[in-house]
Design a protein around this nucleic acid. Structure first.
Lengths: 210, 210, 210, 210
DNA sequence: CATGAATGAGCATTCATTCAT
DNA sequence: TATGAATGAATGCTCATTCAT
């Protein structure tokens, strides 16, 4: 995914030099620390030490400690949504797209456990999360799925007697449900098997039986 | 379960000089606080205030703040193991016992979400957990299951070509796996359905096909 | 005044041991520091260092830094109001009492410059001042004066065509007006002259002629 | 006064390469901020933001934050002294000049409360104030008065048995004394009445009774 | 057994100031 | 001349823990 995101989103080389190097060091330091500790027990002093920058630079680059976390999350999510959008191109049929959507989401959760832990466990308890930029990206991600479902309903692939939002919730919940234990207990995930399994259950419920 | 545990484990009035009342107040205060906050953001000052005792008494009764948590967990677990031991009496056959074991475990996770959250999410990250008394009780709990499995292997109910510990891990993992999302996302659990489902999968995999 | 206040308000020796010694050390440290610095540029670290106690003790004895200042002020004021109340006893006639009130107030401002500086310059800008305990004592102080004025109106010493609150404001404003420059520019005050002067102006304005 | 000061002190356009524009923006930003906050709680970041210039420019134009304040004060004072010098021209007699001096000084304090607050309250506590350029201008201001007094003594208008510096101190103290409460408590000033009152007291004390 | 007082280490955050470009 | 990035030293405040009684 990293390579792809370079292709899609990295700086065009001639434009802004943009991100100050310290900002990068800080986000990377946080990511590294999150591998072993939960966010609340990571201190700003620790972050700055690992980043090798002055502590005050955290506050010059981000609103506050939480703002830094949100920035890290947003970056992850943006990356993912961009890649997912790309991956869905050229796939025909809503059912096929949903399969891809599920497979990719599981892959994403599997690939970066740090991010997944935060996304599934930490961030929901944060005050102001649902007003954050991060959450807006999550909504965009969910929106991709809604569009596919609506397309499926329109072209007859998916039954019309369940609301798209109901179906969407089922799918997103199913993905999280499936990945969570592996993330918590640090198991590996069989991406193909899990996606197939989920789709099997899902499609036999939601596809229109002629 | 509460009534039963009284019968089994509470002080017989004539024996031990019993738990100092302050100790009880403190553990109960922590339990109450854990309902709404995670352990790290509960302060010792808060605990002592809710308990109505002096803050220093926490350290007279427990090694430290974490020791207090472990004590609370141990109490929970001891209670559970005692009840489970009791419940398993009079049941014939390893398969039936495993079914009971699974049902009761799910029931337990479902019944006390506070405890479950800690047990599944918080405690594992604590340094020294695996040397703690708490973990010893967890092992005792797992030991109950091992004994049943071995009994099943011996009497031919269970195939002998898988190690008992492998089977045990599968069962315990399956239980946690099934309960975790409900605990995290705060869903209700259909105890019977979940136990049946788990047993179904399990037994058709591990029972000896003649 | 100190001796008197001992007589009036100090502990009866047999009752509560009351104030922890650290609290005393802290308030005295603040008072000392206020002699040379304004409150905002005094740090809690400084206070604790001068007091010879741990910084955290400030927060165990007082709500916060500002709470500490208010406590110091309240103490001063309470002392003063108690003494003033005592001093006014046995004086006959509203005019005589007002003269005493003015003289004592000036004396008070003169005597403790630290307190006066805070009272006249710092405290008014503090958010929440007018809801503070400190301000309640100030109101009690003003209330003493109002009572005297009303007494004077009733017995014909003071004209009835000005509201008591108007008169009170005039008197209190006059006192502050007179003392302030001496406090700011650190001049000495001729207590008798200043009081006489103020009374002269005041009485020829507010006493009923003929 | 503003118009006049333009005439007197602003850049002659053809002479000096003039003040760098950033310097002007910075001093004006500080003046604006001083309207609502005291100097210590204004940050350099704030100043540079309001000024619309880079924070580091403050240090290119001034020694430090305090140096900036002194520069602002000096500017104010220079302006005032220039105007006062101008206003005193054409007035005959020391007594008349003193009256003008007093009236103008009160007017000045009244007109710009921000400046007055700083001048009367803040600046005196600053280490190094009495060595500052600002203080030199204050001395020049005081010098104007001394000259008048000496003139008055010489021509017999003023008694010779008080030292000029004693008289000067009395006058300057009187002015501050009179203005200060209005500035602190934010009252309006009746310029004429206050000047007349001050002169009345002053002249009947210091003029020679034949 | 119980307590009030005490404390060292640490917390997120801010600030005036400097430096490389 | 101007700037964005960087920084050391604080700041008010909190916490788990200890100790004398």
């Amino acid at each position: 995914m990293v390579k792809k995101s370079k292709l899609l989103s990295s700086e065009p080389a001639q434009a802004k030099p943009a991100v100050p190097p310290s900002r990068l060091k800080i986000t990377q330091a946080l990511k590294e620390l999150l591998r072993n500790k939960d966010f609340n027990s990571i201190t700003t002093a620790e972050i700055s030490r690992v980043a090798g920058v002055n502590e005050a630079l955290i506050y010059r680059n981000f609103i506050d400690k939480r703002g830094l976390l949100h920035a890290v999350l947003s970056e992850y999510l943006q990356d993912f949504v961009a890649n997912l959008t790309f991956d869905l191109k050229g796939i025909h049929g809503a059912i096929n797209k949903i399969r891809k959507f599920i497979w990719a989401s599981i892959h994403y959760y599997d690939e970066d456990r740090v991010f997944s832990k935060i996304q599934l466990l930490e961030v929901r308890n944060f005050p102001g999360y649902f007003e954050s930029e991060t959450y807006q990206i999550v909504r965009k991600y969910a929106g991709l799925l809604t569009a596919i479902i609506e397309e499926g309903i329109e072209n007859g692939e998916i039954r019309k007697d369940i609301t798209p939002s109901g179906i969407r919730q089922l799918i997103l919940g199913g993905i999280e449900h499936a990945c969570l234990p592996a993330i918590i207990f640090d198991h590996s995930i069989d991406n193909d098997a899990m996606a197939d399994n989920l789709c099997e259950i899902l499609f036999h419920g939601i596809t229109r039986k002629m």
